[in-house]
């Protein structure tokens, strides 16, 4: 299974980004072989609108089944939910710490958007 985490860096040691839709990219970790790739999201950094829907499409395109991010706006959540991608809430820290915590069952899943649009 693949796990996508928004980040301002490009590695497992990078910090989790505060935002989902306007993160500069996603680290996508593959739990089966322990590898990861970086998916660019920079075209959404300055999008006038719809960053959440576009970022969600980018994440869906990576084949991820789980996202770990601090918050999800209503549009982003609706897209992720429509294709069955699970949404977990991250804790401050690195991408790797959050993936480890997820695998250990320490992160909670959210079944609704947890911030307003344009957050």
């Amino acid at each position: 299974m693949k796990i996508a985490v928004p980040t301002s860096g490009k590695t497992l040691e990078s910090q989790v980004d505060n935002r989902f839709g306007r993160a500069s990219g996603f680290v996508v970790f593959n739990t089966e072989d322990g590898t990861f790739v970086y998916a660019d999201n920079s075209q959404n950094l300055n999008a006038a609108q719809g960053a959440g829907t576009q970022a969600s499409q980018n994440v869906a395109g990576t084949g991820a089944g789980v996202v770990i991010a601090p918050s999800y706006g209503p549009n982003a959540f609706r897209v992720l939910n429509s294709v069955g991608i699970k949404t977990f809430i991250s804790a401050p820290g690195t991408v790797k710490e959050n993936i480890d915590n997820y695998i250990a069952g320490n992160l909670s899943e959210t079944d609704a958007a947890n911030v307003e649009g344009h957050w």
């Binding site: 999008a47 006038a48 609108q49 719809g50 829907t53 576009q54 969600s56 869906a60 897209v79």
Partner: peptide, 8 residues
């Protein structure tokens, strides 16, 4: 161009 439609 306004990201109002999403198709996956």
């Amino acid at each position: 161009q306004f990201n109002a439609l999403v198709s996956l």
